[in-house]
Amino acid sequence: MKSLPLLSFLAATPVAVAQAQTHDHHGMSAVKSSSPHASPAVAGLAPGTPAAAFHRQMDSVMTVMDRGMQQMGGVPPTNIDASFAAMMVPHHQGAVDMARLQLLYGQDPALRRLAQSIIAEQQVEIQQMNAWLRQHGAAAKPSSAPAQH
């Protein structure tokens, strides 16, 4: 059965992204519900529906990602290379978290495959950027480290 590896993958993510966003998995305080990314169209969705949950969680992911990019893991803004890597870590983690939401809520097989690919590729790139930051003495603070799911 093709969905078994996917189910195993999702089971390996502690209670999935839905609850991960309410915890401090990016090393930042919990995200408030008033996201600058909230779409006015989402306000019309019935509470408790999968679409409402998806959009609420997506807004949360975007807010956490933006905050991480702004904080840059404490890297001095004068170091352009380190700034790039430090901002890309939460940016890529945001992509991973968004892709996980697609796997939780999405139905389209092509988009689900794309989401799986995004997760795999972005996690490798997060590791590469964190390694670069460590090698150059600019290791990002834990607040911008990738979530451990």
Rank of each mutant, 00 (worst) to 15 (best):
P40R: 03
L101V: 04
R100K: 07
Q19E: 15
D81E: 07
D66T: 10
F54R: 13
H55I: 01
G94C: 12
A30K: 04
S35M: 00
H55N: 14
G74E: 10
S35H: 00
V42N: 03
K32V: 06
T78E: 13
T22Q: 12
Q70I: 06
G73K: 11
Q70C: 06
A51D: 10
T63K: 04
G73W: 08
D108R: 10
F84R: 10
A41T: 08
M87F: 01
S33L: 05
M98P: 00
P90W: 07
I80L: 11
D108I: 04
Q93L: 12
A41Q: 11
V96A: 02
S35D: 01
A43K: 11
Q93Y: 02
V89E: 08
F84C: 09
T78V: 10
D108N: 15
V75F: 07
R67G: 09
Q70P: 00
H25D: 07
A18L: 11
V96S: 00
A53P: 00
A95W: 07
F84Q: 07
L45M: 12
A99L: 00
G27C: 09
M69E: 15
G106W: 02
M58D: 10
M98W: 00
V89W: 03
A53Q: 12
A41I: 07
S29P: 09
A85S: 13
A52V: 01
V96W: 00
V15H: 08
G106L: 02
M72R: 15
A43E: 11
M87C: 14
A43Y: 02
T49H: 07
T13R: 04
M28R: 13
P40F: 04
G94W: 06
P47A: 06
G48V: 01
Q102N: 11
M65S: 14
D108K: 10
H23T: 08
V64G: 07
G27E: 02
Q21H: 04
A86Y: 12
D24W: 00
A86S: 15
L101A: 08
V17C: 10
N79V: 10
S60R: 14
D81C: 02
A85W: 10
A86P: 09
H91V: 12
M72C: 12
G68N: 03
A18S: 14
T13H: 06
G68A: 05
A46W: 06
A86G: 08
H92P: 04
V17Q: 01
P14M: 00
M28Y: 02
T13I: 15
V15C: 03
Y105Q: 04
P50W: 05
P40Y: 01
Q107M: 15
V75N: 12
P90H: 13
L104N: 05
I80N: 09
R56P: 00
A43P: 02
Q93A: 14
A43D: 14
S60F: 08
R67D: 10
Q107S: 15
H26C: 09
